[in-house]
Nucleic acid binder design. Structure first.
Lengths: 199, 199
DNA sequence: GTCTATATGAGGATAGAC
DNA sequence: GTCTATCCTCATATAGAC
């Protein structure tokens, strides 16, 4: 009981402290304290600080996978609305957004333990959006001839960039900003039939 | 001679090392070594590590000010093209882009010495773009009724977000991606007269 | 202006008791 | 599974000689 409870408490504490101080900035002792045990006690559950970081990322993938598989399952152009939901969802959990933003910055260094994770994360995200957009093009939901690969990168870029601005200035309304992009795409690229396109 | 030369060498070295390792990750000793002197020798020129960081940022503002005052001086909707030039320019200097991206991530923590700098930096950038877009609206260059404040944030967000993706995947073509957004804005919001609007 | 030497502290990780 | 005690390394910063 106390064993598994500790592990979860450690991951939760690490999430919070890596988010607010970064991986480098947060000490194992501070994580341990917040989790309610000693620093060597923490290292009983995770062999090293890097292992703890990887566990935090793995745990996030797990948690987010539950939500996003439901939220992002829409096909074709519906991805734009699904991502808007995600932006709205994220606006309610600044700590998680901060965690990824901070680790994204740190992870740019190719020697950082989160580097490979970030590289594949963005490959995956862009590929997913591209798949939806390509599908939308094939179905005639959007006009052909656009550079959908570039568009995918733009959509991801806007979401990330807005997060940084929002974290620096909580007054900024990410949803409203995202909608500006989404509306531009819809009104310019999307075919608006009366006989619908989504299921 | 050796005095001023050292100061410049230190700032250059710090720029490179803060970019690749972050402010926290780079040690004063490593900066000093790359600048060709000892760590206490470095601290003769800058009283502390934080002072060195602020000097690096100040120096960047100075250097970038020279270029950007020339590049970004276009009025009204011309800002979109000016920013495209900036994206292209940035694609040729990954180290500077990395510096800002890394420090942006670190600077999210409100205790980080670069935090205040980042907050005012983004306020300033958005305000500048908003000013241009408002001007464009008044001149009739773009259709009235858009949320130009949100649009400004979106434009900035794309530029930043693309930089992160590019740093993780140098294959990504930032200019091409930026153009996708720029084209969306132009074709949807910009009034295309035959009698022109820019001087 | 630059150096060597050093003070001082923090952080990650290990050893071994309970 | 958790603790205390400890080791080792590294980093910032200072003192004082040249």
């Amino acid at each position: 009981m106390r064993g598994e409870g500790s592990r979860a408490a450690i991951i939760e504490a690490a999430e919070a402290l890596f988010a607010s101080q970064g991986f480098r900035g947060a000490s194992l002792a501070s994580v341990a304290e917040q989790a309610g045990l000693s620093q060597p006690g923490l290292l009983h559950h995770f062999p090293s600080k890097v292992a703890l970081l990887l566990a935090v990322l793995e745990n996030r993938d797990l948690e987010d996978g539950k939500v996003s598989s439901a939220r992002l399952s829409r096909r074709g152009i519906g991805i734009l609305g699904a991502l808007e939901n995600l932006v709205e969802y994220n606006q309610g959990r600044p700590e998680i957004v901060r965690l990824f933003s901070v680790l994204l910055g740190e992870g740019l260094a190719d020697t950082h333990p989160a580097h490979d994770y970030m590289v594949s994360r963005y490959e995956r995200i862009r590929a997913r959006i591209l798949r939806n957009l390509s599908q939308a093009e094939e179905c005639g939901e959007i006009l052909p001839g656009s550079d959908l690969k570039a568009l995918s990168a733009v959509v991801v870029a806007v979401m990330d960039g807005l997060q940084f601005q929002w974290l620096l200035d909580p007054e900024l309304d990410m949803v409203r900003c995202y909608q500006v992009l989404s509306d531009l795409i819809s009104s310019r690229l999307v075919v608006h039939n009366s006989d619908g396109g989504s299921d």
